[in-house]
Amino acid sequence: MADPMRIRANMTGDKVEVKVLMAHEMETGLRKDASGNAIPAHFIRNVTVTHGGKTVLSAQWGTSVSRNPFLHFRFKGGKPGEKVTITWLDNRGEKRTDEAVIAGG
């Protein structure tokens, strides 16, 4: 199981500012190991951010996104104490869901 995401969700004015750091190797499939064998691709394909049962933002990624992906965005309609849930799904079918409580007002 992959390491948890680090999620920070803070109120900035009337919007919730979210910063996410995901722990994922985002292997391109183009690298070779020490003995010259190709290291298979392993990367996050889909990211979904939900709040109050609604999808706030979703993304489709490929190997062009850097290792341990970072994502920063804002959404409206959130209040302190509510939860933001983020899920990623990678090309091997591995999945990770984490949530954060919106801080500050």
Binding site: K54, T55, V56, L57, S58, V65, L71, H72, F73
Partner: peptide, 18 residues
């Protein structure tokens, strides 16, 4: 490289990544 799907609920049409 990447696609982001937004909606009217996004406070700002802005995404940042690496």
């Amino acid at each position: 490289m990447a696609s982001f799907f937004l909606g009217s609920h996004m406070g700002r049409a802005e995404v940042e990544s690496r």
